[in-house]
Structure formats: structure tokens, C-alpha cells
Lab assay of single mutants.
Amino acid sequence: EFTQISGYVNAFGSQRGSVLTVKVENDEGWTLVEEDFDRADYGSDPEFVAEVSSYLKRNGGIKDLTKVL
């Protein structure tokens, strides 16, 4: 089950073990991109978060400006 990723309007994530599946949706709710990120592939949590965040930004993730990150 996908849940909204904090700080984004149209990005959602689903966690299974160490694998986080993220997706970005358009205004109609269609999935634009979907990608798996395995936490085990990264040396640290900040590196993992930075990679996921960068992916979302590159692929149309819209920041939720009503929330302070």
C-alpha cells in the first residue's frame, strides 16, 4: 500500500523490508514513474534519503510548500 511521502504533493512510497518503492503521479492520478530503492545499496540513511529525494525532483515530484521540511 502506497502512502504519501512527507513534503511532496504527488509522491508516494511503499516499504517492503529494506526496499522502498516510490512513485510520482500526475494531476489525474496516473503513475508517471515508479522505482525501487534498496536501503542496503546505500552507505547511510542521509545518502539514501538524498537519492530518493533527487529522483522525485527529477521526475516531477511537487514539493508541498504548506509544510516545513
Rank of each mutant, 00 (worst) to 15 (best):
Q4V: 11
I5Q: 03
E1T: 11
S54Q: 11
V22P: 00
E34H: 09
E28H: 10
E25F: 14
E34V: 13
S54I: 08
G7R: 04
Y55H: 05
E25S: 12
E51Q: 10
V68M: 14
F12T: 04
V49C: 15
K63R: 12
N10I: 05
G7C: 14
S6N: 13
D45N: 07
V49L: 14
F37A: 00
R58M: 12
G43W: 07
D38L: 02
E51C: 13
E34M: 15
D45G: 07
Y42Q: 00
N26E: 01
D45W: 15
D36A: 12
D36W: 08
K67Q: 13
A11E: 00
V19E: 01
E1L: 10
F2P: 05
Y8W: 15
T31N: 03
G29I: 02
D45S: 06
T66H: 10
S53D: 15
E1D: 10
Q15W: 15
D45T: 09
R39V: 02
Y42I: 01
F37D: 00
N10L: 03
V52R: 00
F2E: 04
I62R: 09
Q15Y: 14
Q4E: 07
S6T: 11
V22N: 00
D41F: 08
G60N: 03
D41K: 11
T3R: 14
D64I: 09
L32R: 05
D36C: 13
S44D: 05
V19Y: 03
S14N: 08
L56R: 00
W30T: 14
E47K: 02
V24F: 03
R16P: 01
T66K: 12
V19D: 01
S6I: 11
V24L: 08
N10C: 13
S6W: 13
K63P: 12
A11S: 02
S54W: 09
D64K: 10
L65M: 10
G60T: 03
V19H: 02
G43D: 11
D45H: 08
P46Q: 15
F48I: 00
V68F: 11
G43Y: 07
V49W: 15
R58V: 08
V19N: 01
A11H: 01
Y55P: 02
V33C: 14
E35S: 10
Q15A: 08
V24A: 00
V33K: 07
D64M: 09
Q15D: 02
A40H: 08
N59K: 04
K63S: 08
A50T: 07
I5F: 06
E51H: 12
T31L: 09
V19I: 12
A50C: 13
S18K: 04
D27E: 14
L32F: 07
R16E: 03
L69W: 06
F2R: 06
G43T: 09
V24G: 00
I5L: 10
F2K: 06
F48D: 01
S14P: 02
T21K: 09
F48H: 00
V49N: 13
L65A: 09
V9N: 06
L20H: 02
R16V: 08
D27I: 11
S54Y: 09
L56Y: 00
S44Y: 02
A40T: 08
N26D: 10
P46H: 15
G17M: 02
G13Q: 13
G43F: 08
G29S: 03
E51S: 12
E35K: 15
G61F: 05
G43M: 11
G29P: 03
D27L: 13
V68G: 13
E35M: 14
E28Q: 11
D41R: 09
K57D: 15
E47A: 08
K23C: 09
R16A: 07
Q15I: 13
L20K: 01
S18T: 12
A11G: 03
Y55K: 06
I62V: 09
G17I: 05
L65H: 10
D36F: 09
G60Q: 05
V24P: 01
N10P: 01
S54P: 00
G61P: 03
Y55A: 05
E25A: 11
L69H: 13
G13L: 09
G17P: 00
L32C: 08
E1H: 12
E1C: 15
Y8D: 03
F37N: 00
G61H: 02
E28C: 15
V49S: 09
N10D: 01
D36R: 13
L56F: 00
Y42G: 00
G13D: 01
R16T: 08
R58H: 10
G29K: 04
F48L: 03
V33S: 12
E35Q: 14
A11V: 13
S44I: 02
G29N: 04
Q4Y: 08
L69S: 14
E34Q: 15
Y8H: 06
V33G: 08
W30N: 11
Q15M: 14
G29D: 03
E34S: 11
G7Y: 05
E1K: 12
W30Y: 14
G7N: 05
Y42D: 00
L69N: 14
F12S: 05
W30D: 14
V68C: 15
N26Q: 05
G61S: 05
G13W: 15
I5V: 05
S18F: 05
G7D: 04
T3W: 13
L56S: 00
G60V: 01
T21E: 01
K23T: 08
E25V: 15
K57Q: 14
Q15S: 09
V9R: 09
F12M: 04
E35P: 01
F37S: 01
P46G: 14
V22D: 00
V68T: 11
V19P: 00
V68P: 11
D36K: 14
G43I: 09
G60E: 02
V52Q: 01
G61V: 12
S53F: 13
A11R: 00
V22I: 10
S6K: 11
G13K: 10
T66C: 15
A40W: 07
K57E: 15
L56M: 00
Y42A: 00
E1A: 11
S44A: 03
S6G: 08
G13A: 13
Y55W: 15
G13P: 01
